[in-house]
Structure formats: C-alpha cells, structure tokens
C-alpha cells in the first residue's frame, strides 16, 4: 500500500548532521559565529587572516558532513560575489606595507591584502553558517521549531506565510510582466521605458494581495485561528540523535578557541 498522507508530509533525514533538531542547529550557528569573532579580535599584534581562512575550512567540513555540500555551495553564490568585491576592492584601495604586486597603475600592498582577507573571510564565515542553517532546514521545520519553542502562533504564521507570499507574488509578477510584453508594453530599451514598466507590474499585485487579505482574515477565523486551545501539529519535528554530541563538540571547540586566544595568542 502507498504511504499514508500523514506519513508523506513528514520529513525524515538519514544524515545525522543534516537531520539535527533546528534548535541544535541554531546553537551551532551561534557558537560558530562567536568563534569567528574570537578569531578576528586583535588582542595581540598578531595578524590573523589565516585563521579566518582555516575557519572557513571548518565550514566546508560541516557542509560536507551534512551531506549537502553542493547545495550549500550553491546557496553561497551571492556571498561569494560580495566576498570577491571585498577582496578586490580592499586589496586595491588599502595602502601600507610592502608592495606585493604591481601592474601599471594597479598595486597591491601588504596591508590591503591582509584587510581584504580578514574582512572577506569574516563575511564568508558568518554568512556561510547561515547558508548551512537555511539549506539544511526547511521552512516547515523552522515553523515547527518556532511553535515548539512556544513562540506566539501569530509570529509563526507570519513567518511561513511570508515565504509563501514571496513565492506567489514573484510568480504573479512574472505573469504580469509577460502579459505586458504581449500587450506591447516595453520592458527593454532606454531607462525611462524600463522605469515605466515597473509601476504597472507592481501595483496590481499589491492591490490584489491587499484586498485578498481581508478575505484571508475571514478564512483564518473560520478555520479557528483565534480558538482558545493548545494547537496541535500533524507535522512532527524529528531529532537525529546526534544532538547532545554535536552540542558538546561545538562547546568544546568554542571554549578551546577562546582559551587559546586569551592565554596563548
């Protein structure tokens, strides 16, 4: 027999890291960010960009161990662009130190490259761990975790419905834009032409959404949104079983890094 509907809407993950409870993932995320800052703080004269790079290596290991390496890297695309901009801009505009490279008017000096790596990898590290969290945690799991944590129902509703609304409105905006093209409204050409296409693409979307919101309120009330009851959920958030171990390891790493920075370096 086919799997029941109730079974089909559940999320099961085989990978122990991928399947961590969302709360544990959140703690790992926070500790990782703390470690990034521990590595970045200049308590001594030591220059530390290399540590940031090594710490990024740890992130890649986390990606790989979660079994989501490719997916996480794809999620990093926007971050890599910013990283590249920071590295290029900082290496070029920051003066000071030895000249490392010179080609015509372009010079890269030691301090510039250092700052570039420091800033660049810090952004990469902090942003990367968020990418890991969101690539390995579905919206459904986040919503369920919010509910489990006792967050107000309205907040959980707003969060999930926002993600769905963006999907919906994005789709509708593409439909409207195509319809406009078909009706001969220019969406390419000079700036004024393109600017003129913006408003008629957006306003009808907002209007439909707002007038729809009134009826949506009625719908939600009819479905018992305001009933005084302890809500239940057909979707059950699962644990992978590695939660305690992961917590201990992350805490140990954090404490060890902090101790090393305070007492040794």
């Amino acid at each position: 027999m086919d799997k029941s509907f109730l079974e089909q809407v559940q999320i099961h993950k085989k990978n122990k890291l991928d399947g961590l409870h969302s709360k544990t993932k959140m703690i790992v995320l926070i500790l990782y960010v703390i470690c990034t800052f521990i590595l970045a703080v200049k308590v001594t004269r030591l220059q530390l960009p290399l540590y940031q790079i090594a710490w990024f290596g740890v992130l890649l290991v986390i990606f790989a161990l979660s079994g989501q390496f490719a997916k996480c890297l794809r999620g990093m695309r926007a971050v890599f662009v910013v990283f590249a901009v920071i590295v290029i801009a900082q290496s070029l505009i920051q003066p000071g130190g030895e000249i490392l490279f010179k080609l015509g008017p372009i010079t890269i000096e030691e301090h510039g490259l250092q700052k570039a790596c420091n800033l660049g990898f810090m952004v990469l590290d902090v942003a990367g761990i968020f990418v890991w969290f969101f690539q390995t945690t579905s919206h459904k799991e986040i919503a369920a975790a919010l509910r489990e944590a006792g967050v107000n129902d309205k907040i959980a509703y707003v969060f999930v419905s926002t993600l769905k609304m963006i999907d919906e409105m994005g789709k509708n905006s593409r439909t409207i834009m195509n319809a406009q093209r078909a009706r001969g409204i220019e969406t390419e050409g000079n700036l004024m032409v393109r600017a003129k296409a913006f408003v008629p693409s957006l306003i009808p979307l907002v209007l439909t959404a707002i007038t729809g919101a009134e009826e949506r309120v009625v719908t939600l009330e009819a479905r018992g949104f305001s009933v005084n009851a302890q809500k239940t959920s057909v979707f059950k958030l699962e644990k992978s079983g590695a939660e305690t171990l992961v917590l201990i390891v992350s805490l140990l790493i954090t404490v060890a890094l902090a101790a090393w920075r305070i007492f040794l370096a």
Binding site: L6, R223, G224, F225, V227, A229, T232, S233, V234
Partner: peptide, 13 residues
C-alpha cells in the same frame, strides 16, 4: 483548522 482546535493528530488524520 483541526490543528488550531487542538485535536489530537490521530483523530485529525
């Protein structure tokens, strides 16, 4: 709706 009413999952299903 039944989740909002707090009905147990087995019964909801």
């Amino acid at each position: 709706g039944l989740e909002n009413f707090g009905v147990p999952v087995d019964e909801i299903d």
